[in-house]
Amino acid sequence: MNQSQFRGTFRPYVSPRDPCPPILEKTFVLPPQLFTNFQKPGLPQNSPEEALKQGSLWPQFVDGFYREEGIS
């Protein structure tokens, strides 16, 4: 699963007086459905077991989300 294609970044203003250690680059989610207005027929499908595990029959619409990404 390539998550990076479904993530954006921006660099917020950093003040020398920021009370918490500043995060120089913030990441946010650009979920797969943003790039598909209408699903095309015949997309590659997950196996039934994998579809249940991932929450989608089509791997194309799975971007996953993990605490380890450190988005928040």
């Binding site: 979920p31 459905q33 207005n37 209408f38 699903q39 929450g55 989608s56 619409f61 996953g64």
Partner: peptide, 19 residues
């Protein structure tokens, strides 16, 4: 994580409804 992914798909279906 499963529930989050379902929201992705639901969003897509509503976008398709608009189309």
């Amino acid at each position: 994580r499963f529930l989050r992914e379902r929201e992705n798909i639901h969003s897509l279906r509503f976008r398709e409804s608009v189309e």
